[in-house]
Write a protein that binds this DNA or RNA. Structure first.
Length: 875
RNA sequence: GGACCCGUAGCUCAGUUGGUUAGAGCGCUACAUUGACAUUGUAGAGGUCAGAAGUUCAACUCUUCUCGGGUCUACCA
C-alpha cells in the first residue's frame, strides 16, 4: 500500500469495477426490495453542490441497505425541466445575436436547438453523478421526456380528463410577459418592493374615492366593492354609475363583498375582474348571485394596453399607461393622495418578470371534485396520505423527517387551488387534446379522420415529475418493476420543492395507483457559503464539486457534506471542511496500512477472536456498542450523528489507544482483523472509494466490500471491564499531563508509584502499557502508599498516583495547582451535598438518580481527602 | 397579517422523550517527531448554553414574553 491515499489513482477504476460487477442492478441481488428514486436533476446545466449533497445522501442510504442484504434499486434520471430549459436556450440564442428565437426558428427549429442542448447537458451531468460514486442502476436510467415517461404522462392526462378532473377553463392566470407563458402559483417567487398607493375618484360626480397601486388597470373596472356592513357605503350597493374615467366610459356597479376591509384605504375597492385574481373571484361570485358584472381586458399578453383601454392608451406599456392615468387624474383634480407603501408581488421563477394577471382559456386540474369511484377529491387523498394513511390504512402513510414539514404540507393542502396545467412554451409534453371545430378528443394519437388539430400548449413540467416514482419503473406497461419497487422506500429532497414536487408525487401516486409514492421522505436544507449566503451564479461564490473532487477526492467531499448536516436545516460548506475530511480519509488509509502490516493472513471470517488482555476486551466492547449506535442512527436518518460516532471510535479509540497498545502487547492478529473488517464496512457508505480500495489491497479483487454484510452488534462482547480500561487511560493521561505541566523533557523517563487500593491486580496486569505510554522507568504498585518526598501526585477514581520528579518539584507551583483543584472539589461537594440534603429531591427524584448522586458524593469526598493529604505533605 | 427555523467555546455545529462538573471538528497555546500517518502525536486554554419570567426536587432541554438573524406563506386592493 502506498504511504498516502491518492484518490485520483483509484476512483475511476473502482467505479468501473462496481458497474461491471452488476451489483448496482437489483436484478443481480437477493433479498427484500428497497428502492430510492433519484430526484432528476434538470438538464439545464452542470452538477452543483446541492446535487453533490443529494447524491451523497442517497448513496449512503443505498449502500447501507445493500449491505443489509437488500435488493437495492437506486434509480437515476434527469428532468427535461420545460420552462427552465427553454428559457436557458432562448437566452443563449439571444446572446448569440438572435432577436426572437421563437419567430426566427419556428417550433420545430427551436425544439431541435433545445434538444441538442438538453442531450449535451444530460450527458455531462450523468457523468458527474458517477464521479460522486453514486451506486445507481444505469440500466434503468430514465428521463422525464423520453418515450416511456411520455406514455405515462398521456395515460394519466386521459384518465384525469375522463374522470372529469381536468377541465378547460377561462380564468385569470399568472402570465409572464417575458416568457410568454403561464406559471402556476407554486412557480412564483414573491418579492417585496416599494409601490405608490394612489387615492382618487373616477370622476367628479362619483360619490366616493377608492385607492389602488395600479391606476392603469382601473380602465378595466366594472364594479366597486365595499364591505356590506360599512355604513358609509351601504346605501349605494346595487346602484350603477356611468363615469368617464380618463376618457373611457365605464359602467360601475356597487357591490357588497365581505372580503373588503373597511379599514384599508378608503374602504372601497375598484374591481378589475380581468386583471386581479381576487377581483376575478368576485366576478364569478356575482355570476352565481345572478347579479353579474362585466369583464374588460385592458392588458394584452404582450404586456401592452388593448384597444379596450381607449385610444389614449392602446399600445402603451403598463408603466406608460400608469403614468398617463396619474397625469390625467392630476390634471382633473381627481387625485387625492399619493403615498409610498411596501408591496409584495409575484415574479416568474424562470423569467424573473413580475407576472401579470390576465384571463385566459387554460387547462386546469380540479383538486376539489369528487373522483368517480373514490368518493373523495384529490385534496382528500393528499391529506390522508400524510395523516391517517391512505384510505385510513396507517401502513400507507408518508412519514416526513423532520416532522415539522408535515404541518407545512397540510397547511398548503388545505389552501390548495386548482392547478393550471397548460404552458405556452414548446419544450415539454404536448397536451394530448385534439380539436376539430367544436369537437374535442383526448389521447396521445391523432383521432381518425381529417381536420384534427392538436392543442398548441405543453404541460407544466411538474406534471411529469409528479409521476416520477412510478413512471421510472415503466408504468403503465411494465407491471413487474412497479409491483416490486413501488411504493418506494425513501425519498430525499430540499424543502424548497416540498410544494412543487412532494405534494404532486403524493397526488399522482395516490390517484393513479392507490398507493403512497414513498414511505419516508427526508427533507434536507440548503447549502450556504461560509458567510451563510446562498450559493448562486450571480454572487459568484459557487464551488464546483468536480474541482473539489479533483483536489481532495470524492470521499472527502462526501464526508464534508454529510458530516455537518441535520435534517431540515441549512448547513455551511467551505473548503476547510473538505480538508479536514481529506485528513481523515488518509488517516483511515494509514490505520489500515498499519493493521495490515501486523496481520499475516487477513480473513473475512469471524473465527476465534483470541481475546487476551483488558485492552482487547475494551476495544471489542466499544466496537460493539458503537456498531449498534451507528446502525440506529442511520435507521433514523441521523447521518452526521452516525458518522461522528464512527469517526470518534476510529480515530480517538482505535488509532490513538488500541493501536498504540497493540505495539506494546503484540500478537493481536484476530482482534485487529475483526475490527478492521467492521470499521471498513461501516465507513463504506460514507466513503465508498477509499474503503473499497483498502478492501482490494487486503482481499484482492475477488470480493467487493460494496456487497459485504453490514456488521452485527455482538452483544456478548460488551463487557463491564471497559471501565477498568478507562481508568488505565486516565492514569496515563494524568501522568502525561503532570509531565507537560512541569516541563519534563519528553525523552526523560520517570518513576511512579500507584496507591491502587483494591485494584492492584488491574494495574499489575497493565503495568507495561502504563510504563510505555506514560514513559516511565519504573512503576511501583502498592495497595496503599504514602506520597514519597520529591514527588507530586493526582487522584483518579480513588487511586492515587505519585510521580517522582527527583527533586525538581516546584513546591509553590504545586501548591497552587492543588489548591485550585481543592477549591473546585469543595464547590462540587457542596453542590452535591446540598442536593442530597434536599428532602424534596430525595423523595421526588427517581431512586436511580439519587443513588447516582450519592455515589458521586462519596467519590468526590474521597478525592478531596486525598488531595488535602497531598497538600499537607508539601513542605 | 400568519407560520416555521435558528441564536451553545474565536469559527462551523452536535446535544433524540428534563437528571454528565455542557461536547466535537477547525482555529489557538506549549511541547514532541527519523518505522502506519507532519494529511502526525501529547498536553492545554476557551462557554453565566441570546435575555427575562415561569413550571419542576431538577431546565441547554418544557411554557410565555423580549431582543437579534433567517425562511416560507397570504386576495390587503
Amino acid at each position: 500500500m502506498d504511504k498516502a491515499y491518492e484518490p485520483n489513482l483509484y476512483e475511476d477504476q473502482i467505479y468501473k469495477r462496481w458497474e461491471e460487477s452488476g451489483f448496482f442492478n437489483p436484478d443481480n441481488l437477493e433479498g427484500e426490495p428497497y428502492s430510492i428514486m433519484m430526484p432528476p436533476p434538470n438538464v439545464t446545466g452542470v452538477l452543483h453542490l446541492g446535487h453533490a449533497l443529494e447524491n451523497s445522501l442517497m448513496d449512503v442510504m443505498a449502500r447501507y441497505q445493500r449491505m443489509q442484504g437488500k435488493k437495492v434499486l437506486l434509480l437515476p434520471g434527469t428532468d427535461h425541466a420545460a420552462v427552465a430549459t427553454q428559457a436557458r436556450v432562448e437566452k443563449n440564442l439571444i446572446k448569440e445575436g438572435m432577436k426572437n428565437p421563437r419567430e426566427e426558428l419556428g417550433r420545430d427549429g427551436l425544439l431541435e436547438k433545445i434538444r441538442e442542448y438538453a442531450e449535451q447537458s444530460k450527458a455531462t451531468i450523468l457523468k458527474q453523478i458517477k464521479k460522486m460514486g453514486t451506486s445507481a442502476d444505469w440500466s434503468r436510467l430514465a428521463y422525464t421526456f423520453d418515450e416511456e415517461r411520455g406514455k405515462a404522462v398521456n395515460e394519466v392526462f386521459k384518465k384525469m380528463y375522463d374522470d372529469g378532473l381536468i377541465y378547460r377553463g377561462f380564468r385569470v392566470v399568472n402570465w409572464s410577459v417575458k416568457g410568454q407563458s403561464t406559471a402556476s402559483d407554486d412557480e412564483l417567487i414573491y418579492i417585496d418592493r416599494k409601490a405608490k398607493f394612489y387615492t382618487f375618484k373616477y370622476s367628479k360626480d362619483f360619490p366616493f374615492t377608492i385607492a389602488t397601486t395600479r391606476p392603469e388597470t382601473k380602465l378595466g373596472d366594472t364594479a366597486v366593492a365595499v364591505n356590506p356592513d360599512d355604513k358609509r357605503y351601504q346605501k349605494y350597493i346595487g346602484q350603477v354609475f356611468d363615469v368617464s374615467f380618463c376618457g373611457v366610459d365605464l359602467k360601475l356597479k356597487i357591490i357588497g363583498d365581505e372580503h373588503v376591509d373597511p379599514e384599508f384605504g378608503t374602504g372601497a375597492l375598484g374591481v378589475t375582474p380581468a386583471h386581479s385574481p381576487v377581483d376575478f373571484e368576485m366576478y364569478e361570485k356575482q355570476k352565481v348571485k345572478n347579479d353579474p358584472i362585466g369583464l374588460i381586458k385592458v392588458i394584452g399578453i404582450d404586456g401592452k394596453m388593448t384597444s379596450e383601454a381607449g385610444v389614449d392608451f392602446v399600445g402603451k406599456t403598463v408603466l406608460e399607461a400608469r403614468d398617463l392615468v396619474v397625469e390625467k387624474l392630476k390634471a382633473q383634480g381627481l387625485l387625492e393622495a399619493e403615498e409610498e407603501i411596501e408591496q409584495n408581488v409575484g415574479t416568474s421563477d424562470r423569467f424573473g418578470d413580475v407576472v401579470e394577471s390576465i384571463p385566459m382559456d387554460q387547462w386546469w386540474l380540479d383538486v376539489n371534485k369528487e373522483i368517480p369511484s373514490r368518493g373523495k377529491s384529490l385534496r382528500d387523498l393528499m391529506r390522508e396520505a400524510l395523516t391517517a394513511g391512505l384510505d385510513g390504512d396507517i401502513t400507507k402513510k408518508v412519514n416526513v423527517t423532520p416532522e415539522r414539514f408535515t404541518k407545512l404540507y397540510l397547511d398548503r393542502v388545505d389552501n390548495l387551488r386548482d392547478w393550471c396545467l397548460s404552458r405556452q412554451i414548446w419544450w415539454g409534453h404536448r397536451i394530448p387534446v385534439w380539436y376539430k371545430g367544436e369537437e374535442i378528443q383526448v389521447g396521445a394519437e391523432k383521432p381518425d379522420g381529417d381536420g384534427w388539430v392538436q392543442d398548441e400548449d405543453t404541460l407544466d413540467t411538474w406534471f411529469s415529475s409528479g409521476l416520477w416514482t412510478f413512471s421510472t419503473l415503466g408504468w403503465p406497461e411494465q407491471e413487474l418493476d412497479v409491483k416490486t419497487f413501488h411504493p418506494t422506500n425513501w425519498m430525499q429532497m430540499g424543502y424548497e420543492i416540498l410544494y412543487l414536487w412532494l405534494m404532486r408525487m403524493v397526488l399522482m401516486s395516490t390517484y393513479n395507483l392507490g398507493e403512497i409514492p414513498f414511505k419516508d421522505a427526508y427533507i434536507h436544507g440548503m447549502l450556504r457559503d461560509k458567510d451563510g449566503q446562498k450559493f448562486s451564479k450571480s454572487s459568484g461564490n459557487g464551488i464546483d464539486p468536480l474541482e473539489v473532487i479533483e483536489k481532495y477526492g470524492t470521499d472527502a467531499l462526501r464526508w464534508s457534506l454529510l458530516g455537518s448536516i441535520t435534517p431540515g436545516n441549512d448547513s455551511r460548506f467551505y473548503l476547510e471542511k473538505v480538508e479536514g475530511a481529506q485528513h481523515f480519509v488518509n488517516k483511515l488509509w494509514n490505520i489500515s496500512r498499519f493493521i495490515m502490516s501486523v496481520i499475516p493472513n487477513p480473513s473475512q471470517g469471524e473465527g476465534s477472536l483470541n481475546i487476551k488482555t483488558l485492552a482487547d476486551k475494551w476495544i471489542l466492547s466499544r466496537l460493539s456498542v458503537v456498531t449498534e449506535q451507528i446502525t440506529t442512527n442511520i435507521e433514523k436518518f441521523q447521518f452526521s450523528q452516525a458518522g461522528e460516532l464512527l469517526r470518534d471510535f476510529t480515530w480517538n479509540e482505535l488509532a490513538d489507544w488500541y493501536l498504540e497498545i497493540a505495539k506494546i502487547e503484540g500478537d493481536k492478529t484476530e482482534v485487529l482483523n475483526f475490527i478492521l473488517n467492521a470499521v471498513l464496512k461501516m465507513w463504506h457508505p460514507f466513503m465508498p472509494f477509499v474503503t473499497e480500495q483498502i478492501w482490494t489491497e487486503i482481499y484482492g479483487t475477488e470480493k467487493m466490500l460494496m456487497v459485504e454484510k453490514w456488521p452485527k452488534c455482538h452483544s456478548e462482547l460488551v463487557s463491564e471491564s471497559f471501565e477498568g480500561f478507562e481508568l488505565i487511560k486516565n492514569i496515563i493521561t494524568g501522568i502525561r499531563s503532570l509531565r507537560a505541566e512541569n516541563k519534563i523533557e519528553p525523552v526523560k523517563k520517570l518513576n511512579a508509584l500507584i496507591s491502587a487500593g483494591g485494584m492492584v491486580d488491574l494495574f499489575q496486569e497493565n503495568a507495561e502499557i502504563i510504563k510505555v505510554l506514560a514513559r516511565l522507568e519504573n512503576l511501583q504498585i502498592e495497595k496503599t502508599a504514602v506520597k514519597p518526598e520529591g514527588s507530586i501526585g493526582f487522584v483518579e477514581s480513588g487511586v492515587e498516583v505519585f510521580v517522582d520528579l527527583s527533586g525538581a518539584v516546584d513546591i509553590a507551583k504545586e501548591k497552587v495547582r492543588l489548591e485550585k483543584e481543592k477549591q473546585e472539589l469543595d464547590k462540587y461537594v457542596k453542590g452535591l451535598a446540598g442536593k442530597l440534603g434536599n428532602q424534596e429531591f430525595v423523595s421526588n427524584a427517581p431512586p436511580a438518580v439519587v443513588e447516582k448522586e450519592q455515589q458521586k458524593l462519596t467519590e468526590v469526598k474521597d478525592k478531596l481527602t486525598k488531595i488535602e493529604g497531598q497538600l499537607n505533605s508539601l513542605k
